[in-house]
Each structure stands twice: as structure tokens, then as C-alpha cells.
Simulated assay, not measured.
Amino acid sequence: MTTFDDRERAFEAKFAREEEMAFRVHARRNRLLGLWAAEKMKLTPEESEAYAKAVVQADFEEAGDEDVVRKLVGDLTAAGVDTGDAEVRKALDDMAVEARRQMIEAQ
């Protein structure tokens, strides 16, 4: 039975590593997305960092990406930036690819 126990522990450890990596990629994607939006709103570097953190925090409001999209569209519109839901979703997809690339390079 030890072979099966060892195999089970290995699968559990692999699952935990993959879940942690997925979480980190997701958080990095949101940070990059916040920096993208901050650039469009012409924020200072300090304000940009704070805004990126706020975008990461906004993702914890509800499951899925709707809370982040809603925050970004609302903030960009309030700042007078002509943008829409489709542009934010495209940026979200682009930043997901970049976040994955950055995490792979960091390993």
C-alpha cells in the first residue's frame, strides 16, 4: 500500500502546486491589467501601483472576472477615457498571456 500512498501524496502535491501557480498568474494578470488602466488614465507611478493593488483586491468581491471588468470600465469611464467592455476584456486576455509568460520565466 505504500506505493499507492506515495502516488496519492505526489498527485496531491502536484495539484497544490498547480493551484498555487494558477492563483499567482491570476493575481499578476489583475495587477498588469490595473497598470494598463492606470496608464490610460494617466496616473502617476505611485497612483498606478495603488490602483493595480485595488484591481487585485476587487477580484475577491465575487467569483469570475465580472467584478474586475466592472471596476475597470467604471473607473476608465469616470476618468474620461473612451473605452468599452470589449476593450477591457481584450486587455484582460492579453494580460493573462503576459502574466503566464512572466511566471514561467521566473521559475
Rank of each mutant, 00 (worst) to 15 (best):
A27N: 09
K90D: 08
K42Q: 15
G84M: 06
R9N: 13
T44N: 01
L33E: 00
F60G: 13
D65Q: 10
Q107E: 12
F23C: 11
A52L: 06
E62N: 06
A86D: 14
K53Q: 14
M1T: 13
L35M: 06
V68W: 06
K71I: 00
A78H: 06
R7P: 01
H26R: 12
E49W: 01
E12M: 10
A96Q: 00
K53D: 15
E61R: 15
R28N: 09
L92I: 04
E105K: 07
D75R: 07
V25L: 02
V73T: 12
K42P: 03
L35I: 01
T83S: 09
V81R: 07
A37L: 01
A37N: 01
Y51P: 00
E49I: 05
F4E: 15
V69Y: 04
K71Y: 06
Q107M: 13
D85H: 14
E49Y: 05
Q102Y: 03
V68G: 01
D82S: 08
K42E: 15
R100S: 09
V55I: 07
E98V: 03
F23H: 15
D67F: 10
A22F: 10
D82V: 09
N30Y: 01
A38M: 06
I104M: 12
A79Q: 08
F11R: 15
Q102D: 07
L35C: 03
A37K: 00
